[in-house]
């Protein structure tokens, strides 16, 4: 069934953050911030979501580009994934982010898809995207969590009525880098750590992030803390192009005198939010990043995983990715 005709909306093209925020504040829940439009237009074409007033961010000055700051790097929310993967600064200091951006979708999507849109995108649970009246859509059932439910892509942790997962490839990298998300609305700017930016159903079942109507993500700030660490990123998906992660992993670690002195690790597509693997970080710190440590870390990482009918495979997958992140980074 083709549903390609979008419902009419009005399009606004502000040229400054101030004007964009004014418009988004004015339209509230009927407004929609549009960056590259890759996710946005799918929702509109499928007629599952709608906004009467779309605010195109492409002409907003100051939202795009990668800048060095006193304590790190600031990436404008409208910076494309291609720009990030190709940036010498990002490659040199935060290669985990460049590597994750390179694994998103397809070349053309990365050419127009922005980092802001990538972190703010909605989940890919196909029941939800099809438009069924599930918990996340304001209803009172989950179609994925049933005996017949097709839940191969769904979560291992954090099920709370909804069992959808975070789809973003860059999100785990940003959590690992301890990035800060700069959000502006009519009341001013606030900064939220990446780890708190993504939220699960227990906080709000209808959103994937703290962003609310009227909010504009303006920049992602990456502190120097993890610059130049030994990084690892790996994504496993059905196809190398287009497909969302079945599991992805990002890690940053420093090794001193043969032992891990500091490490941060996060996995995507196993929970509604990027899953920080604190237990791994604890086990590994102080040990040599060898085969034995890696094996222990892998086992610890998957403890407590609660699979559904079709996603048991994610458990050994995550275990192996954790092992590799420690052994091969």
């Amino acid at each position: 069934m083709s549903k390609d005709m979008m419902r009419a909306f009005e399009l606004y093209q502000p040229d400054s953050v101030e004007n964009a925020v004014e418009l988004l504040g004015r339209f509230g829940a009927d407004g929609w911030a549009m960056a590259g439009g890759n996710d946005t237009l799918d929702w509109f074409k499928d007629r599952v979501k709608y906004a009467g007033s779309v605010v195109d961010l492409s002409g907003v000055e100051g939202l795009s580009g990668i800048r060095e700051t006193a304590d790190g790097v600031e990436i404008g929310a409208m910076t494309t994934l291609t720009e990030i993967e190709a940036s010498p600064l990002i490659q040199e200091r935060y290669s985990v982010l460049a590597d994750s951006a390179r694994r998103v979708a397809s070349p053309q999507i990365r050419n127009t898809g922005t980092i802001g849109g990538n972190v703010a995108q909605d989940t890919r649970c196909w029941y939800y995207r099809y438009g069924v009246d599930c918990y996340r859509a304001g209803g009172n059932s989950c179609y994925a969590d049933t005996p017949q439910g097709q839940n191969r892509e769904h979560c291992l942790w954090g099920a709370d009525r909804c069992i959808a997962v975070t789809p973003s490839d860059t999100a785990p990298a940003l959590v690992v880098l301890d990035a800060r998300m700069a959000i502006v609305n009519a009341d001013g700017e606030r900064e939220v750590p990446a780890e708190e930016f993504f939220i699960g159903p227990e906080i709000d079942i209808e959103r994937m992030t703290v962003l609310e109507p009227g909010d504009l993500l303006t920049a992602i700030r990456i502190p120097n803390d993890w610059a130049g660490a030994q990084f690892y990123f790996e994504k496993v998906a059905d196809r190398n192009t287009w497909d969302f992660p079945l599991v992805n992993i990002a890690s940053a670690m420093f090794v001193e005198g043969g032992a891990v002195s500091r490490i941060r690790m996060a996995a995507g597509a196993v929970e509604c939010v990027p899953r920080r693997l604190s237990v791994v970080e604890e086990i590994v710190t102080g040990s040599a990043p060898d085969e034995e440590t890696a094996a222990l870390a892998g086992q610890a990482a998957v403890r407590g995983a609660t699979p559904f009918n079709y996603n048991h495979f994610k458990i050994p997958l995550l275990e192996n990715l954790v092992k590799r992140a420690i052994r091969d980074s």
């Binding site: 549903k3 419902r7 829940a29 007629r47 599952v48 906004a51 859509a137 304001g138």
Partner: peptide, 9 residues
């Protein structure tokens, strides 16, 4: 619904 569906589409 809290989600903005388009009726009947």
């Amino acid at each position: 619904s809290r989600r903005q569906f388009i009726k009947g589409v």
